[in-house]
């Protein structure tokens, strides 16, 4: 029963949505309007589920004094304080919530992302070696694009930004489109398998 009912929901709704897209009729349009109302109700439950799960995971870590339980404490405290400030004073400019956002979220988020520059520099130095013809082509393309995306490339010669545009517009575009088509076909095949009940791993519980 635990598996049959979710499976039936997926199969029935899967076929209904396919019908909605391919059969432009009042019945299918009405069905979609009805679904839209439902999704507005169901959506917020995910927040309750998410917050509940976060609290359960971290409180259990704190209780057990699991390794790095201090981080869990910080998470819970941050969650409570941010939520309370948002509920009490609102989230507009000039409120404590906005102060927390500007002075914690923004600098911490930007710091994490900017670490990429250091890793990329180190990885490029270690990995980019002209070991084969393919690696050399990749190396040259990377150098042209790196120069062409900054003004120094244009200052050297206008051929560099022109070559950069060509690399992005021709070989890059061809590869991206090929990958995109492959991913699209893969998604279609997987979706069909799910709708037809062949692929059931999303139900969990092993085989």
């Amino acid at each position: 029963m635990k598996r049959t009912i979710p499976l039936l929901i997926v199969i029935i709704l899967g076929f209904l949505f396919v019908a909605y897209v391919f059969i432009p009729h009042k019945v299918s349009a009405d069905f979609y309007d009805w679904y839209m109302k439902w999704i507005k109700v169901i959506g917020p439950f995910a927040v309750v589920l998410g917050v509940g799960s976060l609290i359960m995971v971290h409180t259990s870590k704190i209780k057990r004094k699991a390794p790095n339980w201090g981080y869990s404490m910080v998470t819970i405290v941050a969650l409570v304080i941010t939520t309370l400030t948002g509920f009490i004073w609102g989230i507009q400019e000039g409120t404590p919530f906005m102060w927390i956002f500007k002075n914690f979220n923004v600098p911490m988020g930007a710091t994490m992302f900017s670490l990429l520059a250091f890793y990329i520099a180190s990885a490029a130095y270690k990995a980019f070696r002209a070991r084969s013809v393919e690696a050399t082509v990749l190396l040259i393309a990377a150098i042209i694009v790196m120069l062409g995306r900054v003004s120094i490339g244009q200052a050297i010669t206008h051929w560099i930004p022109d070559a950069t545009e060509w690399i992005l517009n021709v070989p890059n575009l061809a590869a991206k489109r090929g990958i995109g088509l492959g991913v699209g076909l893969g998604m279609t095949a997987t979706s069909l398998k799910i709708i037809l009940g062949i692929e059931r791993s999303y139900l969990g519980g092993g085989k």
Binding site: A117, A130, V150, I152
Partner: peptide
Amino acid sequence: GMDAQAVVHVLIILFIVIGNIGYF
């Protein structure tokens, strides 16, 4: 910001060139 990005791009290229000189 683009000034910093331009300098870093040139620097990465230099690192790549140094690594390849060593390799050859």
